[in-house]
């Protein structure tokens, strides 16, 4: 079997997801023998322009980025969106809550007017091009990333859960944050992280995005039961732009 060539690209994001790949555990490093990494700014210097699998991290915020992404798409047989910024805009989309100039000034201060800091509406990768697979999360889970790549190399569609994080809490016997009176967005959020936050004693922050059939209406109605307001729920949902 010829090794698939893999290229990794980044757009607007913190590069934390790529860092997760670098941190892959030894066991999973075997995986890297199954592919040829031909382009990766973060992990190597040698670059190539021919690849089978493109892994894209970050959101699209400028016209030139959209253009670059389109050309990546044209060359890739399989395109993977890596991490929340790429899969659904992630924290970058928080900016939409504010007027752009104000947001820019808050972040960059006086430098805000410099041209390379100009950006437009934030878009997830799939708002610009077709995406074949998603690796959700902020940051991504290295094991899940490896699982997705493994599946693709093996010729199997990666199985990403389409059920709430609560499933993974209950499978592990993690005591629900609602029992402690916290507003958790797990019931609305796609599982696959093994309930990472609840298992560490935190509520779910929703980094893997809203489920396709998320029952947001139910969540609003349920707030009353816990003496919470829908504002509190919405504030929690805003972080990963699942509102």
């Amino acid at each position: 079997m010829e090794k698939p060539r893999v290229a990794i690209f980044d757009f607007a994001g913190c590069e934390g997801c790529q860092l997760q790949i670098i941190n892959l555990e030894e066991e999973i490093l075997v995986l890297l023998q199954l592919v040829d990494v031909v382009e990766w700014r973060e992990g190597m210097s040698h670059q190539s322009s021919s690849y089978d699998i493109a892994i894209v991290e970050g959101s699209i915020t400028r016209p030139e980025d959209a253009e670059r992404l389109r050309s990546i798409r044209r060359q890739a047989k399989w395109l993977i969106a890596l991490g929340s910024c790429a899969t659904h805009g992630g924290v970058n989309k928080l900016r939409h809550l504010l007027d752009f100039d104000i947001a820019a000034e808050q972040v960059y201060g006086e430098a805000a007017s410099q041209t390379h800091l100009q950006s437009e509406h934030v878009r997830a990768i799939n708002e610009v091009v077709d995406v074949d697979s998603y690796v959700f999360g902020c940051p991504i889970d290295a094991r899940e990333f490896a699982k997705v790549v493994k599946a693709i190399v093996f010729g199997k569609r990666p199985e990403i859960p389409e059920y709430p994080v609560c499933v993974e809490c209950k499978l592990q016997g993690i005591i629900c944050r609602y029992e402690y009176g916290e507003v958790c967005v797990g019931p609305l959020t796609r599982a696959g992280c093994d309930a990472r936050c609840p298992s560490a004693g935190f509520r779910c922050f929703g980094c893997r995005g809203l489920l396709e059939d998320a029952n947001v209406e139910a969540a609003r109605e349920v707030m009353d039961r816990y003496g919470k307001t829908t504002d509190e729920l919405e504030a929690r949902m805003a972080l990963f732009n699942t509102l």
Partner: peptide, 13 residues
């Protein structure tokens, strides 16, 4: 079921 999250919690416990 309008209030159901399809979370399977009731099954899994």
């Amino acid at each position: 079921a309008n209030l159901c999250f399809s979370c399977g919690g009731c099954n899994l416990v």
